[in-house]
Amino acid sequence: MRRDPLDYYAVKVTFWGVRGSYPVPGPSTVKYGGHTSCVEVRTESGACLIIDAGTGLRALGQELALQQQRGEKDSRYDLVLSHVHWDHIQGLPFFEPAYLEGTHITIHGLRVATEELRHVITGITRREFFPVRLEAVPADFDFHEVTPQRPFCIQSFEILPFALNHPFGAVGYRVDADGTSIAYVSDTAPFTDVLHKQHFLPGPEIPTPEDKRALDEMQRSLIEALTGVDTVIYDTHFLPEEYERFPHFGHSSPDHALDMCTGIGVRRLVLYHHAPSHTDDMMDDIADHYADRGKALGLEVITARERMELDVGPNAAREASS
C-alpha cells in the first residue's frame, strides 16, 4: 500500500558522536557519550549520508562494513564535512569500509585557503601520523569541494551548504530528502562578538564595521537556510557563562541556538557538540533546562546522546501550510 510521505517518518538520524574537541572516555560520559562529531542520515529507501568523521565514525563504519559485506548496502559512501579540525576527521582512518575492495568514498567539504581538499584530507594519514596511508587503502576516494550557498545533490539528498563562523572556516548543511529536512549547524560561534577569519585569535577581536556586515550576512543566510527545517542539530558546546570567557573559540551556547531557531518554523532543536568537560550530570541539567526553555518558545529541544536515533517528521513548513 502506498503511503503519503506526510503520513510517516521517512528519515532517520543517528548520532554516533556528539562530543566536541576531543573524545572523552570514562564513567562521567557513559550516558551522553564521549565520541566526537559524527551523524548518519538515512532515508527509508536506504540512501545514506554521513556528516562529519569524528571518532564516532569508527563504530558506524564497523556496522556499514558488515552491511556492505552481507550485500545489504551498496559500496558507495558520501561523507560531508563541516570542516577539518581533528575532532571532525579523526575517525576517517578507522572507517572500515575504506579497507574493503570495491568501496567508493566521496568526501564533500569546504576548500579553505589555497590547499585542495584532497591534500588536506590525505594529510591526516601522513606517515608521521598514521601507519596506513589513505592513498594505499583498497577504497577509491573522490573529493568534492563545496561552496557556501551553492546547492548540490547526493543520492536522493538535496543539500545546501552555508558558511559558519568558526576558525579558518566551516560550513553547515541543510539536507532535504523524502519531503522532510534537517540542518547541521556545527561548528559555529554566534554572529555577534567575533568574526573568524584566517588568523589565530589569542582572545576576542572586536569586529570592524566590515566584519559586522560579514557576520550579518552569515547570519542572514543561516536563518534563510534554517527556515521551515524540521530538525536542526546545533553546536551548543558552551554554557552561556563559559561562552562569556571564550567567545573566540568558535562555538555557541544553547541560548544562541534558541535565538536562531525560534520563530522560523523549526520544529525541533538538537543540542550537539558537547564540551568535553560536561559530565553526564551537567548534561542532564542542560537537557532539562533547555527542554523547558524550548517549550515556552514552542520549540522541542532535545540533547544529543550517542546512538540516539531520531525519526525526522514531515517538513514543518509543509505541515504548517496543510
Binding site: P23, V30, G91, F94
Partner: peptide, 16 residues
C-alpha cells in the same frame, strides 16, 4: 592504542 574508546565497555581499564 590507536584511538580513544569511550563507552561502558571500557570503564575498568580506560579508553584514553
Amino acid at each position: 592504542g590507536s584511538v580513544a574508546t569511550p563507552g561502558p565497555a571500557y570503564l575498568r581499564y580506560g579508553g584514553n
